[in-house]
Design a protein around this nucleic acid. Structure first.
Lengths: 148, 148
DNA sequence: GCATATTGCGTGCCCCGCGCACGCTAATCT
DNA sequence: AGATTAGCGTGCGCGGGGCACGCAATATGC
């Protein structure tokens, strides 16, 4: 085997996914935000924060989930006061999912906390190396494998 | 914000996990290996291949799953002929989970396929850069955040 | 040496996430 | 105007996963 870069990356991604799917990341990051924001409802908030008010179907496409799942999670978040359903002014059958101020604050807090957590653990790295790694990771995710 | 490396990495990891948890990776990699090797049973095979014959409790600890889950997955894999339960010679109550030759071949095939897939998509990178990225990713996973 | 505690497995039970399908309303097409 | 399509919400069944129990085998205490 002349080049085992693929194996190296595969192993690293494997252990990384193994830890993340155990929801340890989200659990650690969302603690103190209220019980409504768990690793299940997080993608809904995150997607909304990224694209602004949006319909359930659009979010479902982006998250890669069934529309019913988005509906249920939205209901839960709505009861928690982090999300509100507002009628689409242009289409009266559609309901736009919109973050409330509390929702925006919650997602922003988690984002800041996650970034700080990552930067803390990267403090020992040479600063230029950390920056290069971030850029390469970004490229890997955008143009790498699994960009189905 | 003087340094947004954390945000960059967080975003990249977010999209990466979003794609992977949708089991798209495992589904793509395990197709053609028989129905028994799905994204659920894969960690059992992978863990066994890494550490050799092992008890269910040990595997459960490593995977981060309940022991009952390991038992059920092992049963499924055993029925598929990829795994065998052999009594521990030193402890007659324990049963060592052991990969059969078919199991070893299956896990090896998926590993090769995954590595090839990754290397293909990294073919356009400067070779030194890809290697450096692999090493940094490895370090990130080992000594980075989330090393609970 | 025997009774008790501990360890390792397997299994039944329950919860919950998720996809599917149905019904309903509103918008669009002919 | 009637038919078709798009957007939602909800009931249902399936399957993964944790918890607890029972059983067998080993280790420990008296």
């Amino acid at each position: 085997m002349p080049n085992d870069v693929g194996h190296e990356i595969a192993d690293a991604l494997g252990t990384l996914l193994k830890r993340s799917t155990r929801e340890q990341i989200h659990r650690r990051l969302t603690e103190g935000l209220g019980e409504a924001v768990d690793e299940v409802t997080y993608p809904v908030l995150s997607g909304l924060a990224r694209t602004g008010p949006r319909s359930a179907a659009g979010l479902a496409d982006e998250i890669g989930l069934d529309r019913s799942g988005v509906t249920r999670r939205a209901t839960r978040l709505e009861e928690a006061g982090l999300l509100s359903r507002e009628p689409d002014p242009g289409d009266r059958r559609a309901t736009l999912l919109t973050l409330t101020e509390a929702g925006r604050q919650a997602i922003e807090t988690t984002r800041q906390r996650l970034a700080a957590h990552i930067e803390d653990s990267l403090a020992a790295w040479p600063p230029g190396e950390a920056r290069a790694f971030a850029r390469q990771l970004h490229r890997f995710v955008d143009h790498g494998p699994f960009t189905s």
